[in-house]
C-alpha cells in the first residue's frame, strides 16, 4: 500500500514496506552563538551527549530539508548520509537519502544534472559509499530539481539482487515530486 510522505515542498509516494523521515536538521543557531559564531562550551557539551548524529551544523549554516527512505526500520540516530542506518540494514536493505543544499548551489557545475536520476545496477559501486561497509554498494548524484539542489545518495545492502533493488530505488525516486520554492 502506497503512503505519502510530504513536507518542505517534497512529496514522496512510499511503496509497501518502505518507511521514511522528512525534516530539517535542528537549526545551527541552537548550536552556535549567532553573533560570535562560537559554540558555547556548556551547550556544546550537552549536545555532544544527547544530540543524534547530523544534528550539529556549522556557524551560519541554513538548515535544509533532509529525507531518509528505507525498506527496513530506520533507527532514531542517523547521520545525513545514513550513518547509523546503513550499519544496521541487512543484505536486502535499501536506503535512499535526499539531501538538499543551499539555493546558491543550484545550477552550479556540480548540480548541473536536471531532475531526479533513475539509477541503473551498473552505476552502483562500493567506492561510492561514504564509508565502506563490506558487501554494500553505493550511488551518488548531485542534481537540481525545480531549481533546488539535491544530493541523491543510495545504499544497497549487497550485490545479490542488485537489479531488483535498484528497480525499487528507481520506483521510489519516480514517486518523488519536488516543488520549486
Amino acid at each position: 500500500m502506497t503512503t505519502t510522505l510530504d513536507g518542505h515542498g517534497i512529496s514522496i509516494d512510499l511503496p509497501a514496506a518502505w518507511e521514511g523521515r522528512l525534516g530539517v536538521r535542528r537549526s545551527p543557531a541552537d548550536t552556535f552563538d549567532r553573533e560570535t559564531g562560537v559554540r558555547p562550551r556548556s551547550l556544546a557539551g550537552a549536545l555532544d551527549r544527547v544530540a543524534p548524529a547530523g544534528n550539529q551544523g556549522w556557524s551560519g549554516e541554513r538548515a535544509q530539508p533532509l529525507v531518509h527512505l528505507a525498506n527496513f526500520p530506520l533507527p532514531v540516530d542517523r547521520g545525513d548520509f545514513g550513518s547509523g542506518a546503513v550499519d544496521v540494514m541487512g543484505s536486502g536493505g535499501i536506503l535512499v537519502a535526499l539531501i538538499e543544499y543551499g539555493a546558491e548551489s543550484a545550477g552550479t557545475a556540480l548540480f548541473a544534472e536536471q531532475g531526479l536520476p533513475q539509477p541503473l545496477p551498473g552505476q552502483f559501486d562500493p567506492n561510492t559509499l561514504q564509508r565502506r561497509i563490506s558487501g554494500q554498494y553505493g550511488y551518488q548524484r548531485f542534481v537540481t530539481v525545480a531549481g533546488r539542489p539535491f544530493c541523491v545518495y543510495i545504499v544497497i545492502g549487497s550485490a545479490a539482487g542488485l537489479g531488483p533493488r535498484t528497480a525499487q530505488a528507481r520506483e521510489v525516486l519516480a514517486g518523488t515530486r519536488i516543488e520549486s520554492r
Binding site: 503512503t3 510522505l5 513536507g7 518502505w18 518507511e19 521514511g20 522528512l22 525534516g23 526500520p73
Partner: peptide, 22 residues
C-alpha cells in the same frame, strides 16, 4: 495500521508496522 505523523522536531514520519518482516 502503519504509523503516519510527525516527529518531535517537525519532521514528517512514516513507520511501517504491516507487511514487514519485523
Amino acid at each position: 495500521h502503519d504509523l503516519v505523523g510527525r516527529g518531535l522536531t517537525e519532521e514528517s514520519v512514516v513507520i511501517r508496522t504491516t507487511g514487514v518482516p519485523h
